[in-house]
């Protein structure tokens, strides 16, 4: 009963918050509401027995996206002109929304209600995959293509984001002199590294893996940009390039290697699958952390800069 109530509350709150995010006039309010929505959806994933997704949502979908969107507040107008920011009041918008919800809702509810999907197939071949956790097996063995292409998407996105804003290659001007945040970061670092390492290791037999670990490292990196003297990583540095490329290159190597012994692309030898997957995950963690970290422009918000300069 309590569980059903919680489900109903979450299911109601999510679209409601989504609606509020888009309706609010102030941009900072809608970003904060968006982060709140992300946290609630992390709860929803947990309720749907998807702990892997819950972890990624909390770290990437909400944490890093939230930081990125907060950063936009520094260069956009806090209260954009009414015409631009507020949804132009059109009567068709609400009608279209209701019609779309009704139609899609009907389509979803007319699906068979007890379809196990591919659960049985995955379980039947789990012993050959080299790992014990079905989600990791799907990500890095059965559907290795998806993950390989995904890491390519990440690389292209970071190149694009850096190319359109080459000025963000500048080092961070002046970190905040707040002693508390610096101290907090110093205390946080060992815990962050420990959690990230644990998540890579645990991915073999439980919820966790390269994406979760990379996201946590990248989150620590963003905090480091904001609190320490560490500058934004530069694309021109060879060390950064290697960190970005180790994951994809190793993954491509692991994918192509089976071709030489007459097997298909990404068809690992059963005895070595576990080791190959672990090494690939470790390298992917480094690259994913680097990519996600470099998405963050690293310039301190203009408003904070101004207020920081006042005392001097």
């Amino acid at each position: 009963m309590t569980a059903a109530l919680l489900d109903a509350c979450l299911a109601l709150c999510l679209p409601l918050l989504a609606w509020l995010v888009l309706r609010t006039e102030s941009l900072s309010q809608s970003v904060v509401l968006f982060v709140a929505m992300g946290l609630l959806s992390a709860l929803a994933w947990a309720r749907l027995d998807a702990p892997d997704i819950s972890l990624v949502e909390a770290a990437v979908g909400t944490g890093l996206t939230g930081a990125l969107l907060m950063h936009t507040l520094s260069w956009t107008d806090e209260r954009p002109p009414d015409v631009a920011a507020r949804a132009r009041h059109r009567p068709w918008a609400v009608v279209a929304m209701a019609a779309l919800t009704g139609m899609l809702g009907w389509a979803v509810l007319s699906l068979p209600s007890d379809d196990p999907g591919l659960t049985r197939e995955v379980d039947a071949h789990l012993a050959e995959s080299g790992v014990e956790h079905p989600v990791t097996a799907v990500l890095l063995n059965y559907r290795g293509y998806d993950t390989l292409l995904e890491i390519a998407v990440l690389l292209v996105a970071v190149l694009g984001a850096r190319a359109v804003n080459p000025r963000s290659e500048r080092t961070t001007p002046e970190p905040s002199r707040d002693p508390l945040t610096g101290e907090l970061f110093r205390m946080m670092t060992p815990a962050l590294l420990l959690v990230a390492g644990y998540l890579v290791w645990v991915g073999e037999h439980g919820p966790g893996g390269a994406f979760q670990a990379g996201a946590i490292l990248a989150g620590g990196g963003v905090v480091a940009l904001l609190t320490t003297r560490l500058g934004t990583p530069r694309m021109s540095s060879w060390r950064v390039r290697w960190a970005l490329l180790t994951g994809p290159l190793l993954f491509i190597g692991a994918a192509v290697a089976p071709l030489f012994s007459g097997r298909a692309l990404l068809e690992y030898r059963e005895a070595q699958a576990g080791t190959v997957i672990f090494v690939v995950e470790l390298a992917l963690t480094v690259s994913i952390a680097m990519v996600l970290w470099m998405f963050f422009p690293g310039m301190r918000p203009a408003r904070a800069e101004r207020s920081g300069k006042e005392p001097s």
Binding site: L48, D49, A50, D52, I53, V56, E57, V60, G61, P116, G117, L118, T119, V122, P134, V135, A137, V138, L139, Y142, R143, D146, T147, E150, L154, F211, I288
Partner: peptide, 15 residues
């Protein structure tokens, strides 16, 4: 257990 294939798809989707 739930179907792991959509879970893997969604993980990819979030990233």
């Amino acid at each position: 257990a739930p179907d792991p294939v959509p879970h893997a798809l969604v993980l990819t989707g979030i990233v």
